[in-house]
């Protein structure tokens, strides 16, 4: 296996005008040269292997989109080096875009008024895809998902789910080495989410496409990613297998107890430190326990613990 993406000590700063509050403030702004530096990405190093699906997570404003924009060549890093498929994206945007696909959730990149199939044909011509490869890809799509109902529909008439589906298909059409998916399942219903996850998984399996996925939906992570990278305030705070994550927090259990007044109480317990039976005994001193459930900690809770606690690993 070789590397699809290599990032070395990458930082990105933005210059933002300091805006002042209210009427008086904006009169000041009219003349001020008062800028502040926002550190969107701070010294992030990251290597992604070919064929991997990684989950790139972090709270809102953590710097996920900025990272992706740098990897796609739209933004130039302030410091550090990025190589995508062996190219420096910002210097060689056109060549880089040859071999990547990008989906920004809720922001269609297709021709708004054209039926999907016409968008596909245009993309085929733009990326200079051989006719045979194009037909094979359509065949593959048909085997993975029911595309007939949307193929002849203009994008503007599609539901959000259909649009996202179309965008994902379009991103894979020229068989790129890497596909970036920025919150692809945002705002979708449960069944559409499931279909989209299956599709991504299927394409990754057949085409060995590297997928870099940002999401807030832990369902996406559980279904797709074996490895996750978490950044917060521009800094990388976690980068490892998802299994490792669960092992690391493996000693954690969620203990749910139904008390005498039928209310459920939830406690996250670190078994290496606290004994479950001890917690139950303590609780019983104040109230009778009618029912008990002991659950593995969910990915969602693990991630939340990492966001809250800063350095998790």
């Amino acid at each position: 296996m070789s590397e699809a993406v290599v990032m070395k000590n990458v930082s990105k700063q933005f210059k933002v005008l300091n805006r002042h509050e209210g009427l008086k403030g904006s009169i000041q702004d009219l003349f001020s040269r008062d800028y502040k530096i926002v550190q969107a990405v701070n010294d992030v190093s990251l290597t992604v292997m070919k064929g991997e699906i990684i989950g790139y997570l972090g709270p809102n404003g953590a710097g996920k989109s900025t990272t992706i924009k740098m990897m796609t060549g739209v933004l130039e890093p302030t410091e550090g080096e990025i190589l995508v498929n062996g190219l420096v994206p910002y210097k060689d945007r056109t060549a880089n875009s040859e071999n990547i696909g990008v989906v920004f959730g809720q922001r269609s990149q297709l021709w708004w008024n054209l039926p999907l199939i016409e968008s596909f044909k245009l993309l085929r011509d733009i990326y200079l895809v051989e006719e045979k490869d194009y037909q094979d890809m359509l065949e593959l799509y048909r085997s993975l998902v029911d595309i007939e109902p949307i193929l002849h529909k203009p994008v503007r008439q599609m539901s959000l789910g259909q649009r996202t589906l179309s965008d994902i298909l379009a991103a894979f059409l020229h068989n790129p080495g890497i596909v970036f998916l920025d919150e692809p399942t945002i705002g979708l219903d449960v069944s559409m989410k499931a279909r989209i996850r299956e599709l991504i998984l299927g394409l990754n399996e057949v085409k060995k496409t590297t997928v870099i996925l940002t999401t807030h939906d832990m369902g996406d992570v559980d279904a797709l990613c074996r490895r996750i990278v978490i950044i917060d305030e521009g800094k990388k705070i976690y980068d490892n297998d998802i299994d490792h994550l669960k092992n690391y927090f493996g000693s954690y259990r969620t203990l749910r107890m139904r008390l005498s007044d039928d209310s459920w109480v939830e406690k996250v317990i670190d078994e290496s430190k606290t004994d479950v039976m001890h917690v139950i005994a303590e609780t019983q001193k104040t109230s009778r326990i009618k029912d008990i459930r002991l659950e593995e900690i969910s990915t969602e809770e693990v991630i939340r613990k990492i966001y809250e606690g800063g350095q998790g690993a």
């Binding site: 796609t72 060549g73 739209v74 056109t94 990008v102 922001r107």
Partner: peptide
């Protein structure tokens, strides 16, 4: 609106 970014991802 940020929608402009979509023009930057194609090799043209």
């Amino acid at each position: 609106s940020g929608d402009f970014i979509k023009y930057c991802f194609r090799p043209i």
